[in-house]
């Protein structure tokens, strides 16, 4: 969350709920390092990234549920994933992304 801290703070101060998705593990090749994160505000604003753009749209969808329920989620993406054809990493790696609502 370090890279996106100022945006998260700004959105929170404006009274918005914020969900943060963070790369917590990578296996083989991966576009962004462990700790890279994407913040999504209640109104749909984005900052940061968790991949080169390959999985952000799916993370965005998952983030909506986390925003509503407050229950964090651990997502995995990569070639071994069922969704490899729709949401995958072209570099052939795998990433785990933890999605949580900022309390």
């Amino acid at each position: 969350m370090k890279e996106i801290l100022s945006d998260v703070e700004r959105w929170r101060e404006a009274g918005e709920q914020v969900v943060v998705a963070t790369v917590v593990a990578t296996r083989r090749s991966a576009p962004r390092p462990v700790g890279a994160s994407l913040a999504i505000s209640e109104s749909g604003a984005l900052c940061g990234s968790v991949s080169g753009g390959c999985v952000e749209s799916d993370v965005f969808v998952e983030a909506q549920t986390v925003l509503e329920t407050g229950e964090p989620k651990l997502l995995s993406y990569g070639i071994s994933d069922d969704e490899a054809w729709s949401v995958g990493l072209p570099c052939g790696g795998e990433i785990d992304v933890f999605v949580e609502r900022v309390e």
């Binding site: 370090k2 801290l5 100022s6 703070e9 900022v102």
Partner: peptide, 12 residues
């Protein structure tokens, strides 16, 4: 202070 606030303060 919120966690985000604490992290910002640590950075400052």
């Amino acid at each position: 202070m919120s966690l985000v606030g604490k992290l910002v303060a640590i950075g400052e």
